[in-house]
């Protein structure tokens, strides 16, 4: 536990040691605003809720989370510091979790910075704060799933650009797998239970449940098991690729 926190602290500090962190936070805050107000027609709806704000989170995270996950491991491998890290008295799992925790804290900070919009909507009207809280939690969990995916893929390459592109593509698949476009492709030749399996893997479907105010245990289980699976894969990837 102590080791995980030590690694997380170092990783967080290195996020804020470069301009990337501030650029990311600024872009995230700006884009959530742009999407909510202009594309999501926040005002025209005349409703006091944050539906148009949360609606675009999957698409934003799709690009932004791989951007913060890409350096987690590929940079260690490129610079050779992985050799240092892996010869300290910690396990690969602790290192993976430590880095994941750092990324999660960073994402939490990004989400907290969007809270003025929550305050605004409370001043303007009388929103269902329960739904908004659930949506924030759901948004955070979803971003953590993307983070675990991004971190795993980052462990597979020394090249941050490749890590970013591949991670964004994989995340994209997990978002799209719930849309009709994808499901129609499989419709004709896959049995029904496989199609619903594909659909249930969609981060989007689970997130939409949450933002509608339906915070089901299955959604949480989905997010947590996705994270657990990817973090396990991450540990395996680190062990296998550390020396190559």
């Amino acid at each position: 536990m102590r080791n995980i926190w030590t690694i997380a602290k170092r990783e967080l500090r290195s996020y804020f040691g470069t301009p990337i962190a501030y650029v990311f936070l600024a872009i995230f805050a700006a884009l959530t605003g742009v999407f909510a107000f202009f594309i999501g027609t926040f005002f025209d709806r005349g409703e006091a809720n944050l539906q148009p704000f949360f609606e675009y989170h999957p698409w934003l995270f799709l690009l932004l989370v791989p951007a913060i996950a890409m350096r987690l491991w590929s940079e260690e491998r490129r610079s050779g510091t992985i050799e240092l890290l892996m010869t300290l008295p910690i396990t690969a799992g602790q290192a993976v979790l430590g880095k994941f925790v750092a990324g999660a804290i960073f994402l939490a900070i990004a989400l907290i910075l969007t809270m003025p919009i929550w305050i605004s909507v409370n001043i303007l009207g009388d929103p269902d704060n329960g739904v908004i809280t659930a949506s924030y939690v759901g948004s955070f969990l979803m971003s953590c799933v993307f983070l675990a995916i991004g971190s795993t893929i980052s462990a597979l390459t020394k090249n941050q650009v490749i890590a970013f592109v591949v991670a964004a593509s994989v995340c994209f698949m997990f978002v799209l797998s719930g849309t009709q476009v994808v499901l129609n492709v499989f419709h004709d030749w896959l049995p029904e239970f496989l199609i619903s399996a594909i659909s249930s893997l969609s981060v989007l479907n689970h997130f939409e449940n949450v933002t509608r105010g339906v915070f089901d245990a299955t959604d949480i289980v989905f997010y947590l098991s996705m994270m657990a699976f990817w973090l396990f894969a991450n540990t395996v990837a680190v062990r296998m690729k550390k020396a190559s």
């Binding site: 170092r10 610079s79 050779g80 510091t81 240092l84």
Partner: peptide, 28 residues
């Protein structure tokens, strides 16, 4: 074990003090 890998890789964005503090913490 104290191990210095070839090329002595370190976390470049850290200062030596922060880096040594980190190592000390991991080392308990």
């Amino acid at each position: 074990i104290g191990y210095m890998p070839e090329g002595a890789p370190c976390y470049g964005e850290m200062t030596p003090l922060a880096f040594l503090r980190f190592i000390a913490e991991v080392r308990g």
